[in-house]
Design a protein around this nucleic acid. Structure first.
Lengths: 328, 328
DNA sequence: AATTCTATGTCAATCGTTTGACATAAATTA
DNA sequence: TAATTTATGTCAAACGATTGACATAGAATT
C-alpha cells in the first residue's frame, strides 16, 4: 500500500494537520518542521492521494487534449509541445483522439467533464457537439471556431494563404492551382483558401481549385491530383497542408514535371518532421511553440482566476520558409 | 455543480443505496428501477465522481502511456491504436513523453504511481530507472527490455533484420551497408542489427556499418550517410528505421545513384504515414494492430486477475513490404 | 401456509485529505 | 509586562460514493 498522510506524520513526529499544512503551504510553519516533513515524505516516497484531494475541490492536475488524431505530424507536434508545457506546470495530459468520429468525441467530452480533468484543450472537429456548451470547465481551442465563450488560438491562416499566392505570382507562376481539403466553414482550411483566392484575384488571375474530400485515402488524393495536373497544367500550386503538397510534388515528378522550373509548390503547416524529411518543400509555417505557449497560458488563466476577460480569438503570424520547390 | 448520486436518487424516487446498486450492478434489481435510475442519470447528465470512487479502491479508468515522443510516426501510430483500444474499454490514456529525458521519465513515473492510474504501458528508454521496480502497478512494455517481471511485447526484430539481409542479397546486392541508430543493448535496434549481420555473414558477405548517434540531427545524419555512400559505394542498404531509410534514398539520389538499379534500400517499421508518403520505400513492417491489441490485453489481464502467469516476452512476426526501392 | 427469493430501504462506517474552530505555548514586539 | 505573532496540536466535519449489516414486504415456490 501507498503510504498515507498519517504515516508521514508519524515518521516526522508531527500531527497530520501539520503535514497537510506543509503540503498545502498554509498557516504558520517553521523551516525545521517543513524540513522534517519533506524528509519523511521523501523517505516514504509519499504522494498525496489525488482522489482524496480532488474530493475537496483540489485540482486533479489533469488536462484533456481533444484532437482528431496524432498521426498527422502537425498535430503530433502541437500535442507534444502542449504536453511538455503542461508537464512543466505539474499537469498531465489525457489524450483523446476523436478520429473524426463525433460519437467518440462526445463520449470523451462527457468522460472528461465528469470530474476527471481541470480543463480541456481541443483542436478537433466538433460539428455542433452540444456538450461543449454544457460544462463550466475551462476550455480553449486550437484552430476551431466556437460560437460561445471558448477562446480560439490559431495561425494567421488567411494571411498565410495570401502570402502563398503572392509568393507564387512574384516568382512567375501564371496558372495557379489550389489543392485543398474539404471546404468547410468551421475549418481553418477555409481561411487559407479565401486568403489565397483573394490575393490571386487581386492580381488579376483566376485560380483553379481541386477539393480533396476529407476522408479520402492518399491513393484517391494522388489520382485526383494526377488528373488535375494533366488537365489544368498548373505552374504554381498552393496546398492547404504539407502532406497534400508532398503528394503534389511526387505526382508532378511522375509525369515528368520539373520542380520548380515547370511547377512551383507551397504547402502549409511546416511541422518539423515534414521539413526534415521533405527539405525540398516550401511552406507556410505555423508558430507551434507560440501556439502551445498561448494555449496553455490562456487555459491556466481561466483556471486560476475566473474573472480575467480573454479575447475570443488570438491569431498568430505565420512565416514562409522558402525551399527548392519555389524559384529563387 | 455536477449532480451527485443523491440528486439522482431524489429524481428517480429511490434511495442512494439503490442508485449505487444500479451503477455497480450489485444485489437484486428490478428492470423498472434500473430504468428509472438510468433515466434520471441521463436527465441530470450524471457521472459518478471518479475521485470518490477511487477512494474506495475502484479503478480510475486511467492508463499511463510512457513513450519517448509522439512525433515519430511509428510511435504516434502505436499510441493512437493503444488509445483507441483503451477507449473501447472505457479507459483514458495519459500521454507521457519522456523526450529522452530520464529525469522527466522518472518524474512521470512517480506521478503516475502516486495513485492516479490503474496501469502503465511503456515504450521509453528507461536506462535503469529504479522507479519501475518500485511499484505494484501493472506495467507492460513495448519493445524495451526489463529485468523484472514486466512483460514485453515486440516485433521480431531479429527475424526482420535477417529478412532484410536475405532479400537484399537475393536481389543481387553485394556491397551491403547497415545504417543504424545508436547501438545499445537495451534497444530493439540491437536485434535488428544482429539479425541482419548474422544473415549477411551466413551468406559469406561482410556488411559495412554506419552508426548514427541517437540524438544527432537529420542534417548530421544526412552528412554521415552522404559520406558513407561516396566512400563505401554500397549497392544494398538496410536501415533500422524508415526515417533513416528515407534520408538514405534522398542522399543517394542527390549523388546520382538510381534506386533500385544502383542501390536497393530496405527500412524498418512501416508506419502508415511513411508508407503513404514514401511509397517507394520497401520496409519490414511491424504488426501495429496486433501489438496494440496484445499490449492492452496483457495489461488488462494483470489488471483483472492477478494470478494468471504471463510470459516475459511476446514476439510478433514482421513482414516485408516490397516496393520500388528493391528490384523485382 | 410456510418458506425462500426478490426488491428495496435505512443507517453508518469507510476511503485519504482538507479545513475550520479552538487550544496552547513559545518567541517576538510594543 | 502585556499584547501580539508564530508555531504547532487536537478534534471533527466535510468531500461523494461504496458497502456491509440489517430490516421489511411483496412475489414466487414448495
Amino acid at each position: 500500500m501507498q503510504p498515507k498522510l498519517e504515516d508521514v506524520a508519524k515518521l516526522a513526529g508531527v500531527s497530520t494537520t501539520t503535514v497537510s499544512r506543509v503540503i498545502n503551504n498554509r498557516g504558520y510553519l517553521s523551516e525545521s518542521t517543513k524540513d522534517k516533513v519533506f524528509k519523511a515524505m521523501q523517505r516514504l516516497n509519499y504522494q498525496p492521494s489525488s482522489a482524496a484531494r480532488a474530493l475537496h475541490g483540489k485540482q486533479f492536475k489533469l488536462i484533456g487534449l481533444i484532437f482528431a488524431g496524432i498521426t498527422n505530424p502537425i498535430i503530433a507536434e502541437v500535442v507534444e509541445k502542449i504536453e511538455d508545457r503542461l508537464f512543466n506546470r505539474g499537469y498531465k495530459a489525457i489524450i483523446c483522439n476523436s478520429l473524426d468520429n463525433p460519437e467518440k468525441e462526445r463520449q470523451y467530452l462527457r468522460m472528461l467533464m465528469a470530474n476527471q480533468v481541470d480543463g480541456i484543450i481541443t483542436g478537433s472537429h466538433n460539428e455542433g457537439i452540444k456538450e461543449y456548451g454544457m460544462t463550466e470547465l475551462p476550455i480553449v481551442s486550437y484552430d476551431r471556431y466556437f460560437k460561445d465563450k471558448i477562446p480560439t488560438v490559431r495561425s494567421d491562416n488567411y494571411g498565410g494563404g495570401q502570402l502563398a499566392a503572392k509568393t507564387l505570382i512574384d516568382k512567375g507562376a501564371k496558372k495557379l492551382l489550389l489543392v485543398s481539403g474539404s471546404i468547410d466553414v468551421q475549418m481553418p482550411n477555409n481561411d487559407r483558401i479565401t486568403g489565397f483566392n483573394k490575393a490571386v484575384e487581386d492580381r488579376g488571375y483566376t485560380p483553379q481549385t481541386v477539393e480533396l474530400p476529407y476522408n479520402s485515402t492518399p491513393a484517391i488524393k494522388r489520382a485526383t491530383i494526377h488528373q488535375s495536373l494533366l488537365i489544368d497544367h498548373p505552374d504554381g500550386i498552393f496546398c492547404t497542408d504539407d502532406l497534400t503538397a508532398i503528394l503534389c510534388m511526387q505526382e508532378a515528378k511522375k509525369i515528368g514535371m520539373k520542380i520548380p522550373d515547370d511547377l512551383q509548390v507551397i504547402g502549409f503547416d511546416g511541422s518539423t518532421n515534414v521539413q526534415e524529411y521533405n527539405p525540398e518543400l516550401s511552406t507556410i509555417v505555423q508558430p507551434l511553440d507560440d501556439i502551445a505557449d498561448l494555449l496553455v497560458r490562456l487555459l491556466f488563466n481561466r483556471l486560476d482566476n475566473e474573472d480575467e476577460k480573454l479575447l475570443e480569438e488570438y491569431t498568430l503570424p505565420v512565416e514562409l520558409i522558402q525551399r527548392e520547390s519555389v524559384k529563387n
